[in-house]
Design a protein around this nucleic acid. Structure first.
Lengths: 328, 328
DNA sequence: ATGCTACTCCAAAACCTTTTGCGCACACTG
DNA sequence: CAGTGTGCGCAAAAGGTTTTGGAGTAGCAT
C-alpha cells in the first residue's frame, strides 16, 4: 500500500508537505513541489478517500436528485454535470426521488456525510428533505427557483417559455387553447401556467378554467389530461403541454380519436427531448438546454466548494427558445 | 456530533458492541441489540462513512459505467439498480464513458477506493480500464458478456433477439434485408449481427456483405448508415437496426427520401425505448428489459458484497421479446 | 464440585489523511 | 550589523469507525 508516508520518504520530505502539495492548502516552493509530484506519479500514489474525508471533511462526491430517471431530460442534466465534475476528479451520484418515496428522511440517511454538495431538480426533493439538506450545510443548487433556505439556482424562464409557445399558437390562429400541466402546484407547472395565461390575456383571449388541467409529468399523465380536455363541452383546438412527455400522451389520444394534428388539434411540448423531433408530427416545443443546465449547476457548486463565494444567493439564467415544427 | 461513543454511553455498552450491532459482523444478544438500536434511533446516530471506510474498507457506493447518458436505455438500468440499492443504503454513481475519454486511466483515478463494486455496460469501459477494474479486486458485473477476468454478468440473448426480428421480416416477405450495426466489433453488434445472419441462412437467403454496415449507436449513426445502404446497387427492402436510436436515424433518412415505411422499407429496432412507440410508424423492435437488467445487476453485486458467493462466474439471463408494431 | 465450552461484551490498536502551531533560515530594512 | 518579517517545512495531534484477541460469566457434562 503506497500511502502519503511512502511518497514522503521517496521525495525526502515530511508527510505533511506531501499533503500540502496534494491539497494545495498552503504554498509549497516550486522545487519541493516538483520533487513530490515526481514521487507521486512514480509510485502511483492515490489518496485514500476515506481517510481524507475523516480528517478533511470532503468526500469528493456530488449528488444530483431528480424526480425520475424515466424522463430523458434529467440524464442529460447529469451528463452536463459530468462534463465539469470529471476533470476535477469528482464523482456524481444520481438518485431519483421515486426510489426514495418510502421514507421522508431517506434522502437524509442516504446522503449525510456522503456528498460534498447537492443539486436538486424541482420536486426531486420532498419539502421535508429540503430542510434537511439545508441544515446539512452543504452547497446546494436547485433547478428553477431559489432554494428556500438560501443557495444558488439555475433557471430558465418558464413563464417566458410558456408565453412564447402560447403566443405562437395564437399567431397560428388558434383561439381555444388549453393548458395541460404536470404535477399540480410545483414550480414549473405554476410558472408555465402563468406564461400561458399571460399570453392569452395579452391577446385579449379569455382564460377558461375548464381549459386548464393538471395531471403528472408523464406520457400517461398526458393521455389522461387529453381525454379530460377533449371531452369538455367546448373542446380545445390547441393544447399547450407542460412538457414533452405529456405532449406525447396527447398525441396518443389524438391518434386514438382520429384527430389530425395540427389541423384538428395543434400541440406544443416543453423541453425539446430527442424524441420530440421523432414523433409524428414533429413537435413544436421549447428547447430547454438540459446539458448546459447541468454544466451551470456543477460550476456553481464548484465555486462554492472552492470557497470563492460569500453567502449571497446567486441565480444563473439560461435561455430557452421556441422550436417550431409541424405540430402547430 | 453524535458518534458511536455517545450511542455506547447511552446504551450502557462499549463502542465495539455498538459497531457490531450496526455492521452485524458478530452476533449480539437480542437484549443488548434492542438497547443499542433504541439509543441509535433516539440519538439519530449515523455512521461516519469516511471513518467506516478507513477502517473497514467499504465505501457504501456502487458505480455504473455506461457508454452514454444520451441513450435513454441506460438511465433505466440505473433506475433498476436504485430499486435494489436504495433499500440497502447504498449510493449509486453513474458515469458515462464519453466523459472519461480523455485519459485512459480516468476510470482508475475516479474509482480507486471510491466504490465497493461496479457494473459496466458493454463498451462503457475501454479495454484498458477493464483490466484496472479487475485488479482493483472489487465485485464486477458486466452487461451482455462475462467479464474477461472473471466476474458476473447479466445478459439478454442478443443473437436470439436479432434472429427473431430478422425472421419476422422474412415472414413478412422481405428478401433484401440489411443489417445496420452500431460501433463495430463490440459485443452487442457482433451478436446481433450473428443472429441476423443466422436467420437469413435458416431461410436460405444469402448474407450479402454490401448489406451489412456498422456506424455508431446513435441517431446520427443511423442516418449515415441508412444513406450508405440505400445508395447500394441493390437497395434493401428492410433494415434491421442494431438499436432503436439507429432506427430513428433510418426513419429520418426514409422521410427525407420519401420512402414509405414499411411499404418501401421495413424497419426494426432493438431495445424498445419509450420513443419507439411514438415514432411514425411505431417501431417493431425487441423489448430489452432495461430496468430489470439493472435490478439483476445490483442483486448480483449485493450477493458478492455479502460474501455469499464463491469465485465462480455467474450469468443471469433475462428474456427479450419481439414487439410487433407498424414499421414492418 | 470441577473443568470445559460457548457466548457476550470489552479494550485497544489500526486505518491514512489533514490541520496547525512552531521553529528555522533567509532576505530585507533601519 | 542588528532587528524584523516572511516563507517553508516539520512534528504531532486529531478524526470516528472496525477489528480482534481476550476476559468474564453462565451453562453443561463429567
Amino acid at each position: 500500500m503506497v500511502g502519503i508516508r511512502e511518497v514522503a520518504e521517496a521525495a525526502g520530505v515530511s508527510m505533511s508537505t506531501v499533503s500540502q502539495v496534494v491539497t494545495g492548502n498552503r504554498p509549497v516552493s516550486a522545487a519541493t513541489r516538483a520533487r513530490v509530484e515526481e514521487a507521486i506519479t512514480r509510485l502511483g500514489y492515490r489518496a485514500h478517500p476515506g481517510a481524507a474525508q475523516l480528517r478533511g471533511g470532503r468526500t469528493g462526491t456530488v449528488a444530483l436528485i431528480v424526480p425520475t430517471l424515466e424522463n430523458p431530460f434529467y440524464p442529460l442534466v447529469a451528463a452536463g454535470m459530468q462534463d465539469v465534475l470529471v476533470p476535477r476528479d469528482l464523482l456524481l451520484t444520481v438518485t431519483d426521488a421515486s426510489s426514495l418515496d418510502r421514507s421522508a428522511s431517506a434522502i437524509h440517511r442516504l446522503l449525510t456525510r456522503r456528498v460534498d454538495a447537492m443539486v436538486a431538480a424541482p420536486f426531486g426533493l420532498p419539502p421535508a428533505g429540503l430542510a434537511e439538506v439545508h441544515d446539512a450545510g452543504i452547497p446546494f443548487v436547485t433547478l428553477g427557483q431559489a432554494p428556500p433556505g438560501g443557495g444558488d439556482y439555475v433557471h430558465t424562464n418558464d413563464v417566458d417559455g410558456a408565453y412564447k409557445v402560447t403566443e405562437h399558437l395564437i399567431e397560428r390562429g388558434r383561439r381555444r387553447i388549453a393548458f395541460l400541466g404536470g404535477d399540480e402546484g410545483v414550480t414549473p407547472t405554476r410558472q408555465r401556467l402563468e406564461g400561458y395565461e399571460k399570453a392569452l390575456r395579452a391577446a385579449g383571449l379569455p382564460v377558461r378554467e375548464e381549459h386548464v388541467v393538471c395531471t403528472r409529468y408523464t406520457r400517461q399523465g398526458g393521455r389522461d389530461g387529453a381525454n379530460l380536455l377533449l371531452d369538455r363541452d367546448e373542446a380545445p383546438d390547441a393544447i399547450v403541454a407542460a412538457n414533452d412527455l405529456i405532449a406525447f400522451g396527447v398525441l396518443d389520444v389524438a391518434r386514438g380519436r382520429r384527430l389530425r394534428v395540427p389541423e384538428d388539434l395543434a400541440l406544443t411540448g416543453y423541453d425539446d427531448l430527442e424524441a420530440s423531433s421523432l414523433v409524428t408530427p414533429p413537435l413544436t416545443t421549447i428547447m430547454n438546454p438540459a446539458r448546459e443546465i447541468g454544466r451551470a449547476c456543477a460550476r456553481l457548486l464548484l465555486e462554492r466548494l472552492d470557497g470563492q463565494v460569500s453567502d449571497i444567493t446567486r441565480g444563473v439564467a439560461l435561455s430557452n427558445s421556441l422550436v417550431v415544427r409541424e405540430s402547430t
